[in-house]
Amino acid sequence: MQPFTRLDGLVAPLDRANVDTDAIIPKQFLKSIKRTGFGPNAFDEWRYLDHGEPGMDNSKRPLNPDFVLNQSRYQGASVLLARENFGCGSSREHAPWALEDYGFRAIIAPSFADIFYNNCFKNGLLPIVLPAEVVEQLFRETDAAEGYRLLIDLEAQTVATPDGDVFAFEVDAERKHRLLHGLDDIGITLRFTDQIKAYEARRKQEAPWLFA
């Protein structure tokens, strides 16, 4: 996993609440058995005018000019600004894979769905919760200034605007540590092998039927 430390990124706004993972990456692309290559199909049904299927040459498909991420001013964005309950619905990790593959490294919203929030951290993608009124302000500023960027500092847990506003955000110490260093969860957990075995030995006494 690539580490996340600081990001100075162009912001793209997605002004709708309850964006679900079906919308982030439609189901037909879930048939892939790979982890990469989902970016061109992120938001497929909103982004293209035709119906997308796996294996199509996406560069030849007609883009929906009304979809915000297709506007030229947002090309190359790495920060996604979103509304409440972002990432609700299906647990598919293909959603963060698609966003990451598209080029996003951070998502800012007033709230996230739990599973999606959790999945982001496994993929070097930083979900940031900011108060609704701050998110509202960022939407206004993004809209008003072309080329609007935010400076995100994970170590300091801050988001800074070009005007010098600095907003602090919360993140679990453990998750932060792993993201900062790009650590592999499984490797860390296997260091607890003795504890896991001790738990199993104890549990086998208490509830033998679980291991029958």
Binding site: R35, S91, I115, N118, N119, K122, N123, D185, I186
Partner: peptide
């Protein structure tokens, strides 16, 4: 429910 990284984990 969990994501695929957690399935592996």
């Amino acid at each position: 429910g969990i994501g695929t990284s957690e399935v592996e984990h």
